[in-house]
Simulated scan of single mutants.
Amino acid sequence: MDKFEFLKVEIEKILDSDKTVLIFIRHGETEANFTKQLSGWHDVKLTELGLNEGKQLSKAFQPLRDRFAGIYCSDLSRARLTAELALGSGNKIQQSMELRELNFGDHQNKVYSEDNKSIYEILFTEKYQAPNGENWNDVRNRIMKYLRSQIHSKGVYLIFTHGRAIFSMTHQFGYKNTIKNCSCIGLELDINTLEIMNQLFYWEFPTQ
């Protein structure tokens, strides 16, 4: 069983359960990922590798497309196109700017490598506050407020979004960095409170 078939099987198990689950999927590689820039709300393109990553996700997601309770994506093209490639269609995908990346404000387009210690050393800490932008709680609250307005029944919901947006959900589980491009994570919700209860799985996109 290859990794994509394994992901499909894991998702099928959840679909056949009585759980309410958010599956967050990070978009494919972008030009800004390649150059290690904080693209934030800037609309950057997927690289050829990123396009191929999205296409490969279709092995797991396309056969299950009609079984999800809801499918959502950020309105930025890198997330939208990844969702369309993974599902084989743009039908049923609801776009929203509420699912965008963290707004990096004055740090927009800045390099976040170890050479730029003023950003790099605090970026993935609870202290991070983008100047004239958002912090981790801001982006988490923004995304969860939107999702709670969309969830009206038990089921599995797909959310194609961004690395730091997903990190705002996962740092409570001990993650110290973003998940890799086109990787995904399943988080169980309490259907009554619509609060995240626990992590069900983390699937990492296979390296070539």
Rank of each mutant, 00 (worst) to 15 (best):
T193A: 05
T161H: 02
K117E: 12
R142K: 06
W136T: 01
I196Q: 07
A165N: 05
P63M: 01
Y120D: 10
E10P: 07
R142G: 07
L7W: 02
V139P: 02
I143T: 10
M97G: 15
R65E: 15
F124W: 15
N116H: 10
L46T: 04
E5Q: 12
I14H: 06
F201G: 14
G50Y: 07
S58M: 04
T193H: 04
L51D: 13
I71L: 00
I93E: 03
Q56K: 11
W41R: 09
L194S: 11
D115C: 11
H107I: 08
S183T: 06
L187S: 07
G163E: 09
S168H: 06
G155S: 02
T35M: 09
L200N: 11
I71D: 01
L189Y: 08
W41P: 14
V44D: 12
K55T: 11
C73K: 00
R148K: 12
L22F: 08
N33M: 06
D2A: 06
K176V: 10
F4N: 15
F34T: 15
K45C: 12
L123V: 03
S113H: 11
P206M: 14
K110P: 12
E31A: 09
R26W: 07
T178S: 15
W203H: 14
F34P: 13
V156T: 04
L7M: 10
L15I: 04
D75I: 00
S149W: 01
S183P: 10
F61P: 04
H107S: 13
W41V: 11
D43T: 02
Q129A: 15
E29L: 11
N181D: 15
D2V: 08
K45M: 13
L187R: 02
E31Q: 11
S153Y: 04
F6C: 14
G90H: 01
Q94A: 04
K145R: 09
H171Y: 09
I25K: 06
S77I: 03
F61A: 04
M197I: 12
A69G: 03
A79W: 00
L46G: 08
F167D: 06
E114I: 14
R26A: 09
N91Y: 02
Q62D: 10
E5M: 14
R67I: 01
F68C: 00
